[in-house]
Computed example of a mutant assay.
Amino acid sequence: MKIKILLFGIIFLGLTSFSASDSDAPYVNIGKKSNIKYQSSEGEKLIAKSDCIGCHKIDKKLIGPSYLDIAKKYPLNEKSINYLASKIIKGGSGVWGAIPMAAHSTLKKEDAKLMAKYILSVK
Rank of each mutant, 00 (worst) to 15 (best):
C52F: 03
A116R: 07
L84Q: 10
V122N: 08
I70E: 00
I70Y: 02
H56E: 07
S19D: 15
K57C: 03
L62M: 08
L76G: 01
S80D: 10
S93L: 02
M115G: 00
K113D: 11
G9Q: 12
G9N: 12
G9C: 14
K109R: 11
N77G: 05
S66C: 03
N77S: 08
A98S: 05
S21E: 13
S93M: 07
K108C: 01
Y67S: 01
G43T: 10
Y74G: 00
V122Y: 01
T106E: 07
T106F: 01
G64Q: 02
Y27H: 09
K45G: 02
H56P: 04
V122C: 06
I63V: 11
K57T: 11
S86G: 04
L107C: 00
A116L: 07
G31C: 09
T106H: 05
G64C: 02
D59W: 10
S34K: 12
S40V: 13
I99A: 00
D22Q: 13
F18G: 09
S80L: 10
S80W: 10
L114K: 15
V95M: 07
P26M: 09
L107W: 01
G9H: 04
G91E: 13
S23Q: 15
Y38D: 07
N82D: 15
G91H: 15
V28D: 06
G91W: 12
S66G: 06
G64V: 03
A85I: 10
I63P: 00
A85H: 06
S105H: 03
K45T: 09
Y27G: 08
D24N: 13
I81S: 14
P75K: 12
I81C: 12
K73C: 02
S34D: 10
N35S: 15
I47F: 06
A116Q: 09
V122M: 07
E42P: 01
I53M: 15
C52V: 04
I30H: 03
A103L: 09
I70D: 00
D69H: 06
D59N: 15
E110G: 10
G43I: 07
V28N: 05
A25C: 12
N35V: 14
I119R: 00
Q39G: 06
M101L: 06
I36R: 08
K109Y: 02
F18L: 13
K73H: 07
Y27S: 08
D24C: 07
K79L: 13
S121K: 01
I88R: 03
K90E: 12
S66K: 04
N29S: 11
S21F: 12
S34Y: 04
H56M: 06
Q39P: 02
D51G: 07
F8V: 08
K113Y: 05
H104M: 07
I89S: 01
N82V: 09
L62C: 00
V95E: 14
L46Y: 11
I99C: 00
L62T: 04
S40E: 13
I63D: 00
S105F: 01
G31K: 08
Y27T: 13
E42K: 14
K33L: 12
A20R: 12
K57R: 15
K117I: 03
K60P: 11
E78Q: 15
L107R: 02
S40W: 05
K45S: 05
F18M: 13
M115Q: 04
I36M: 05
V28M: 08
D22K: 13
